[in-house]
Design a protein around this nucleic acid. Sequence first.
DNA 1: CCTTGACTCTCACGTTACGTGATCCTTTAG
DNA 2: CTAAAGGATCACGTAACGTGAGAGTCAAGG
Lengths: 248, 248
Amino acid sequence: MKVKEVAELTGVSVRTLHHYDEIGLLKPEEVTESGYRIYSAANLETLQQILFFRELGFSLGKIKEIITDLDYDRNEALALQRRMLVDRRGQLDRMIEVIDQTIRHYKGEIHMSDKEKFAGFDFTKGNLYEKEARQRWGDEAVNRSNAQLGAMSKEEQEKLGQEMNDIYFKLADLRQLPPESEEAQAAIKLWWEYLNRMGSYSYEAFKNLGQMYVDDERFTKNIDKFGEGLALFMRDAMAVFADRAAAE
Amino acid sequence: MKVKEVAELTGVSVRTLHHYDEIGLLKPEEVTESGYRIYSAANLETLQQILFFRELGFSLGKIKEIITDLDYDRNEALALQRRMLVDRRGQLDRMIEVIDQTIRHYKGEIHMSDKEKFAGFDFTKGNLYEKEARQRWGDEAVNRSNAQLGAMSKEEQEKLGQEMNDIYFKLADLRQLPPESEEAQAAIKLWWEYLNRMGSYSYEAFKNLGQMYVDDERFTKNIDKFGEGLALFMRDAMAVFADRAAAE
DNA sequence: CCTTGACTCTCACGTTACGTGATCCTTTAG
DNA sequence: CTAAAGGATCACGTAACGTGAGAGTCAAGG
């Protein structure tokens, strides 16, 4: 397929395709000797991936990193994109809620604080890659959770995925603070509660899981995509949390 | 409130506030003699509006046009924003659907055409202002439709609003073509069908409605916000459509 | 009163992701 | 074989801020 065809099929401009070629994000499978770009079916699939990530607010640079990642897995990516889209939808829901409130506010039916008026705008802009360690939790007793997940409704699954995202983001935001700080501990408590909804953990297991986040580089790598040093931070916070809880 | 306070409350950066001041989009209520920007509660409400429109993809220039419009009505704007957010959510739903399909496609469970793979990406990017003439249709027999609307479920209402939007956008895209062209007629047919779901029209009434779009400047103004000359284009296309249909 | 740290201001250049011609070459349909 | 349509490559333009740099301001504490 030539540029215009691709452009019309996908809705992006020809210039955009040129641009993506220039920056090495999407190089056409073939270039004729006259210089024409020819795109293959595989190219189209890559483009689809690119567009999904772009819609999710990733910079082209990040997208390039992601899709040229050596162990990039399309299926994993799709699952991730799905969760993020569901997240986005949830955000929109909240914004719609805010609008409804605002309308009622102007009607004098209710009162809204300034904070509430902007509650819909907490864009998780720090676009961070996920790739979710959960799939890789073949080690710990976490495979149970997958079985559980299977038994859950789609809605419940989405809710959980969203929640997990939120917790990671929250933790990433706090990672400069000392792990024993109140905020950190409050956030890590959410993580504890989250995990325990997936299958029960002992304080020991929780602490060990944290240790694994830094010992096993697969975990480290994935977690740190939410923010440099997050794995380390989580390990420390989880240890503090477990120790304190056990001492009670 | 000073800049940082506003920034933290609303989630925008200080630089962004500076920028909005620079381009005259949001001037602080007051500036101290030392040059500090002081924002009022009214400023915050304006900012909320700005952020909603921004989230909906409007350029800052457009937003400025909109909110400095003399007969700008906050309540109308909120209603409009709500509809557009619902639209966006619908788009996300479609994208999620596409992802689900794609996943199944890779699993080999189903087949997807290239077209289907990009079905979620028809971003109605031509960000155009609506303000919806419907509210102003006190003239024609269209008040009936409002009564009907009242009897409809929220979901149905949203669906209709979305559909209307889509039709306007489509027509705006085609407005350079001759009104009797196939595409134009196909699009105007959608409009005919849409209206007839709201209450039945004679071909005569339909044609007259089109004429009104250019005669009554309130209509013209509102319609043309979807694109310069759209009202004129619609009148012509509607006339052709009505004449042809009546001739059958 | 004075210092200090947290804010604030104004340039002013940098960045991202393309848009928009201008100019020139290829390809394809009649 | 000759347009018209599509493609290519510069190269500059734009939108919406980000990111220091350098300098003034303000409230709290010593």
